[in-house]
Amino acid sequence: MRFGIVVFPGSNCDHDAYHAAKHVLGQEAELLWHKDRDLKGSDCIILPGGFAHGDYLRTGAIARFSPIMQSVKEFAAAGGPVLGICNGFQVLLEAGFLPGAMLRNRSVRFQCEHVFVRVEQTDTPFTLACTRGQVLKIPIAHGEGNYFAAPGVIEQLERERRVIFRYVNASAEAVESANPNGSIAAIGGICNEERNVVALMPHPERACELALGSSDGLVIFESVIQAIRSGRCAATLRHAQGRPEPSRGASPPAAALVQ
């Protein structure tokens, strides 16, 4: 399958995501410049970490106006899987793909450390290879990861099981001391109503090789590879992108599996 990784001016984890997709997972990967509109036949879009447009004004506030975001919006509306990582999460919030906003960390510091997140739900393209309650050790690196939304919105997210990752300790307990940034309800990642747009503050792409301290992030990418291979997302996508029928590589024809 093919990962499309959006590059904003100031993205700095685009190549980490590219490396994870291409060299660790052996998939195709394309970097997509933010001023272009062509998603180059991507099966999955990643909005990577970094400091898009220098994070000026607010994190993600300017990136949402980039031309490629219109294509990403159409891709997501057609059911395509979109993953926002860190700054990518902030962009998805500002662009209205997901509810809420990010405040400055409770510590008022940029925090760069390994944290534990618990996988709360497995019915998204990015967590379907996880087990519910699985704890992943993944690094964070952010100054504005303090997730905020109005109480009614938090209630709705919980009710609709849209909190996908929660900060916990190594024993999977959501205790206050395990919440690195002050996020409401220890929220580390959420999804949209249709569940195909998922975003999280921790960096799974930086936790794909043991040499980097953890390979727990792999399962996020393996999930979406499995989702695409099983045709969960592909049929709608091909339709949306006007792509010809034959799929690449060893992937089975998606339409057959969908029906």
Binding site: L103, N105, R106, S107, V108, N146, F148, A150, G182
Partner: peptide, 11 residues
């Protein structure tokens, strides 16, 4: 007013 301001608190 309902939103916590970590920077304001630090100041």
């Amino acid at each position: 007013p309902s939103v916590f301001d970590p920077q304001g608190k630090t100041i």
